[in-house]
Design a protein around this nucleic acid. Structure first.
Lengths: 250, 250
DNA sequence: CCTAATAGTGTACGGTGTAGAGAAATTATT
DNA sequence: AATAATTTCTCTACACCGTACACTATTAGG
């Protein structure tokens, strides 16, 4: 257990071209990076079967067990893939700090939407890798000009990560569902069936019903499914609320 | 696909003692509720192997395939379990609206921490069940006295659900990790190994390093692992930021 | 009593992660 | 140069998974 974790840490933080010290023994014909790329390509494709050691091995022309010289187990593979895709995170830019925080949130949400399997990686025992650490640092860069107390920064960071994680996952799922079957038809069927199954909805949950009926006034983004656009709007709005709350003195 | 969804909806919203219309055919020897309870008991136990149709069937003295008369597939089973555990959600009480929202957040976080598998259920195509709907309604009850614009309420709801989902999952994972191996020993080993693997951390990520070194001033809850206590503190702090931001007029 | 419908069993298929034994290949040592 | 040590990689095998399919057992209505 400890051994595995230490090895994982070393793999995460290895120097990019760091050859792993040659001794005796057969030459390696694969690289860890090649394995991570293959794994990511497989995991990203939601239409295809999900990530498995066999599929990764097939794609590289090896047997499944060959991967275990590079990676202790599937969890470690995913943990390494997880950090690696954070390298895609773009440079953040914007006219003012608030806009840059919004841009950061959009970028992280996009990352989670593109790589839906990111959500499967647990955060307990947080062994951050360098790329995920860079994403966090990028957020802190935007927050420093606001000059907030450390505890507030921590709360903001936690909230923003949670929000982006969730919104990104939702958007990813929604995009996939939209590809699989017609969205508006599904909603129509669904609400008809719902009327049937829960005719007393409005009486049992009056506030929910009222909120559902209340029109949206915030502008919606132009692209994506309806679910995606509302999720994005709520992400933006919530981010602004957080920033506004954090800016208060008291 | 539509058929499945409609059936799921009916199962979710069925009247508690609603017998499913008797016609010809053999009498049922199980109830859906018994299956959901068995499944929940199995899924909750993190030390034991994860939920599987075979384990549920074993616990009920049936063959795995017998379950498929009650449930279309494992996803549907989990979806029904998901809604059912939301029935555990407690009554919310507190001196003022803000305190009640905090209590609500604590309760939802607890729910996710106790049932770690809740996080596996997707939110795309949101077919809410009655118990989850009741949890949402409970939040809206606390928010109405604040008299906020609908879009703000939506943003708050999204953010709070995301926060609680994430924090709850984190806490659940942390509790399990704490049972499995000694927490402080792990942290010590980890930080030693980390020093070794990333000696230049402070130079590469100065803001992260500074934030990590900055002392916490917010009071930490008394119980739980260190990770759980800090996560809870950040949840509270973030919730307060959200409420403060939402209370601004503009 | 017969028919139709439902519940439940048994078997089987194609998939999973990975343990373990051994072969092949490479370097360091004698 | 021969051998030993060490690593990569293959092969086989195990225990498990979700669930399709064919079948039997049981029940209610005509």
């Amino acid at each position: 257990m400890e051994d595995d974790d230490a090895e994982l840490l070393r793999a995460l933080w290895r120097r990019p071209g760091g050859e792993p010290v040659r001794g005796p023994g057969r030459k390696a014909s694969l690289t860890l990076d090649a394995i991570l790329d293959a794994g990511t390509a497989i995991a990203d494709d939601r239409a295809a079967p999900p990530l498995s050691m066999r599929l990764v091995a097939d794609r590289l022309g090896r047997t499944p067990m060959a991967l275990y010289s590079y990676v202790a187990h599937k969890r470690a593979l995913m943990r390494l893939m997880y950090d690696r895709v954070h390298a895609e995170f773009p440079e953040i830019d914007g006219p003012d700090p608030a806009a840059r925080v919004l841009a950061w949130a959009d970028a992280l949400t996009d990352l989670y939407a593109r790589h839906h399997w990111l959500g499967e990686v647990s955060w307990a025992r947080p062994v951050l890798g360098p790329h995920e650490q860079a994403v966090l640092e990028a957020l802190l860069v935007q927050l420093t000009p606001l000059d907030l107390a450390p505890d507030r920064v921590r709360a903001l960071v936690a909230a923003l990560f949670a929000l982006c994680r969730n919104t990104g996952r939702l958007i990813g799922d929604a995009r996939h569902a939209a590809e699989t079957s017609d969205e508006s038809a599904w909603w129509a069927d669904q609400s008809a069936a719902f009327q049937d199954a829960a005719p007393d909805f409005a009486e049992r949950f009056p506030l929910s019903a009222a909120l559902g009926a209340a029109p949206r006034t915030d502008p919606l983004p132009a692209e994506g499914t309806y679910l995606e656009r509302t999720a994005r709007a709520e992400l933006h709005s919530a981010t602004r609320l957080l920033l506004a709350g954090a800016a208060l003195k008291e």
